[in-house]
Design a protein around this nucleic acid. Structure first.
Length: 376
RNA sequence: GGGGAGAUUCCAGAGCGGUCAAAUGGGGCAGACUGUAAAUCUGUUGGCGCAGCCUUCGGAGGUUCGAAUCCUCCUCUCCCCA
């Protein structure tokens, strides 16, 4: 697995690259749709692949471990065979659940004991077994077990947490190195920079992570409620330290605007539930701004969903019809908007890539950002 | 023809003398959502010159300091028996 930079932007730190994985090549910058439980919610594999142009999707260690369970996935021959997605997959380690399910887990130096949100049973996750689980799931890219700290987070907590995340990383690497991929293709392990919103902790973490010389690096613990400027500041700081010749993955980000600004700072990979979750809640993202398709003003608007959209749903359905589907609680509504949003996100990063290669990224980005966050 | 029940804010449906512009649910309107416990959650839903006032609980009268709540008549629904 290799990362190569095809083109670097001259007026920013943006780059266009290629990442080779066990299931093919990923062109960066890239957005990775989130498929927590082995499915990108409301989207079928052929649409995901052919219509949205997704190149890689996510799965989640905690969720897949609890259901369907490792026995099922192993018998299936790994997640790719189980869900039918034959392109690259990345699995999150459960580090985000340490944050999002904070009320039902206990964290110690050894690891985390989660109380299942499904049946209340207890399950211990350690850096070691999280590597083993991700070996069994069989994602092409797997993540180190970390603690995603909340925001706000006091300094002492963040510092202590960072120590744990770093020590867990060493244990992850040890375990990863002494185990092998199960399904005939290589997996790569990415470590995660933490440190909350503290510059010194972020710097220290980035240096530590960089020293591991892994095939790529991730930045976590951001986009958890802090102001966007703070997120950009931390991202910029960390990108300055992480090696340039390795892909950088900003976890859990973000809005279309966040993506473009972070690409400018040197980020290559993103994932976020926003395009899919918000789609199911009636929000669609377009090059002209954000639309809440449930709003009354679309009731009699029979224009196509997104005249400039790249998905077939954009020309196939009218705004009034999609609004009706939401009003009628028809499941098709969320399917249409999910497909649209993913296609838009993939178009956005694809366009960014093109502009980086052509050399007018920053001009294009600045013009786009103004429109992206406006409400239509 | 005889007997009974009931008419409440967009709908359903509580309330049964003051704490009622009126519970709760639905519907409507709007908002939130960033490595997914999320097809979820939150707010709002008579009017206005809005810490107050005005108009509302089928209609018209009445009792009372005070009525959606009690009384009288009227109108209309629904159920049972013939």
């Amino acid at each position: 697995m290799k990362f190569s930079i095809k083109s670097s932007d001259k007026s920013s730190n943006a780059r266009a690259g290629i990442l080779k994985t066990g299931h093919g090549v990923i062109e960066t910058p890239i957005f990775m749709p989130v498929g927590t439980a082995g499915a990108v919610k409301a989207v079928q594999i052929p649409d995901l692949s052919n219509d949205t142009k997704a190149q890689i999707i996510l799965g989640n260690t905690y969720h897949l471990y609890l259901r369907p369970g490792l026995d099922i996935i192993e018998v299936a021959g790994g997640l790719h065979k189980f869900n039918g997605w034959q392109k690259p997959i990345l699995t999150d380690s459960g580090g985000y659940q340490v944050y999002s399910l904070a009320n039902t887990r206990k964290l110690t130096e050894k690891g985390v004991v989660f109380q299942s949100h499904i049946d209340g049973s207890k399950h211990e996750f350690t850096p070691e077994n999280v590597m083993d689980i991700q070996r069994t799931i069989g994602a092409d890219i797997i993540m180190a077990f970390d603690e995603c700290t909340p925001y706000p987070c006091d300094y002492d907590y963040a510092k202590n947490s960072l120590g744990i995340t770093h020590r867990w990383l060493d244990r992850c690497i040890t375990q990863f190195d002494k185990t092998e991929a199960k399904y005939g293709y290589k997996q790569m392990l990415l470590p995660i920079v933490q440190g909350s919103t503290y510059k010194d902790l972020r710097l220290k973490s980035a240096e530590f992570i960089a020293s591991k010389n892994t095939e790529g690096n991730a930045i976590g613990g951001l986009s958890v409620g802090e102001p966007h400027e703070m997120m950009y500041e931390m991202t910029d700081l960390v990108c300055g330290i992480l090696p340039k010749d390795k892909p950088r993955y900003l976890m859990g980000v973000g809005t279309p605007e966040n993506l473009l600004e972070s690409i400018a700072l040197g980020i290559d990979m993103f994932d976020c539930v926003m395009p899919t979750r918000n789609a199911r809640h009636g929000i669609i993202y377009t090059a002209e701004g954000i639309i809440n398709i449930k709003n009354e003003k679309w009731k009699n608007d029979f224009s196509v969903l997104d005249a400039k959209g790249t998905s077939y749903v954009d020309q196939q359905y009218s705004k009034a019809y999609v609004r009706h589907l939401f009003a009628a609680n028809e499941i098709l509504g969320g399917m249409i908007t999910s497909l649209h949003n993913l296609a838009f996100y993939l178009w956005l990063v694809g366009e960014a890539r093109k502009r980086i290669i052509e050399g007018d990224f920053t001009i294009w980005k600045n013009a786009m950002v103004k429109k992206l966050s406006s409400r239509i």
